[in-house]
Design a protein around this nucleic acid. Structure first.
Lengths: 234, 234
DNA sequence: CCGGAAACTTTTGAATACCAAATAGCGCAA
DNA sequence: TTGCGCTATTTGGTATTCAAAAGTTTCCGG
């Protein structure tokens, strides 16, 4: 339910391309500062330039790449500031999402998908993509909130959240699951005020726990523009 | 300063196309439910299908159109719910933007662009696009906040805000300017808590003042899919 | 030897032409 | 009238081509 298609086969080709690039950027296989050559990439991904050029603006909107007219696109250099900004906005959006979701449940909506997602986050194969299961849970809350604009803004944020979660795998602990469980139950019981407060606390705890790790893992200054191949020094 | 190019001439062709369509949708010249025929539109806008096909995903992300695979795109039917959702998210984002902006000023940033924008909102040509000047002011606050992710989310919201403002021109009163002035001054004086609270109050006052007008101006049920030409009844 | 201008090359932005697949509309028959 | 199948339009995608701008190299002069 939470994951109908393993790789998004149904969507348009441009979105598949976007997702492929997103994945490469998050995983570091496309390093920060890399120049994205359209012809090279379209050859590599086995598509023409059209779907590629439809994908680039999407990635640009999410801030994964920077495009300047007639100069091409470069992979964004994520810094500590980017991480802080993600927490800043999660702090504004997730409590609202939790609140809406709880209100919806109070109004009769079924929280079963959300509960299933929580269970999945707990029982899923341990090593495999725990960070992904966590962001799935957050997305499930947004879905339950049934708020179109919120969903749009959240999906813009989603890629960055995935990036952030994958950068701090040590946060995937039983304690994290407890936090999620508390939040999900507040929603499932239809208690908007509690859900909103818990979501806020959840984000702020995450920020506090992550920042020390992040500040030693992220560059503090943008990587200068460089070519496709990772050129190691000397 | 606030408006370097009257029509966005510098940007890529796709963004010009997107803006043109956005404008037509907001103004009603492309009515809700209209089917967007790629060939027809590209002929009308004097561009090939390429920039058009790059523009459509942007409008889709902003929720101005709905695209289904192999079925084309239809103009979104704005309802009261859409308006409520805009207020919901402005309530979450604008106080944060105001807060950041005030913090930046307290940290030494210059609020002169913002003050200029306020002055422009007051003195600008009366009839001409007052709603546009108002949303410019909000954008200026976001710019001053100097928060990359916030800027991205806000620009996704921006089109809808413009739509909403143009739908309720009666809100463009001296009282509105007073509210803006109070907010801008709190920011310019570097008072984050006050600025945040004022921004929230501003949004909620707007919601309360607008909803009565909106509920009589917006359809409550989506317009069914229909062809390009506006077919008046009988 | 270094600096700057000119020529060359690469790459993007955009247009045109084309094809396959799928939808949708239409007509026809029961 | 209703259901079925055919045609025709339209989208999604590819390949090719062109112009213009950016970047790079070369070459000449100080």
């Amino acid at each position: 339910m939470a994951n109908p298609e393993p790789s998004d086969a149904g969507a348009g080709l441009s979105e598949q391309v976007a997702e492929a690039l997103r994945e490469r950027i998050i995983s570091g296989s496309l390093p920060a500062g890399s120049k994205l050559n359209e012809r090279e990439l379209s050859a590599e991904l086995q598509v023409s330039r059209i779907p590629l050029r439809e994908a680039l603006p999407l990635l640009e909107a999410e801030g994964f790449i920077h495009s300047e007219a007639r100069r091409g696109s470069v992979v964004h250099t994520f810094t500590l500031r980017d991480a802080v900004e993600v927490f800043d906005l999660r702090l504004r959006l997730e409590p609202f999402a939790a609140r809406c979701a709880a209100l919806r449940v109070a109004g009769g909506a079924s929280p079963e998908d959300l509960l299933a997602s929580l269970e999945y986050a707990r029982t899923g194969v341990p090593g495999e993509q725990a960070s992904g299961r966590n962001s799935d849970l957050h997305e499930e809350i947004v879905l339950l909130a049934d708020h179109d604009l919120l969903r749009r803004l959240s999906s813009l944020l989603n890629g960055r959240v995935r990036w952030l979660f994958r950068l701090t795998p040590e946060r995937d602990t039983p304690g994290m699951w407890e936090e999620h469980a508390e939040l999900v139950h507040a929603i499932a019981e239809g208690r908007p005020a509690l859900a909103e407060a818990l979501a806020g606390a959840h984000v702020e705890r995450g920020r506090h726990a992550s920042l020390p790790h992040l500040s030693e893992r992220l560059p503090s200054v943008p990587v200068p523009r460089r070519g496709r191949k990772t050129r190691s020094p000397a």
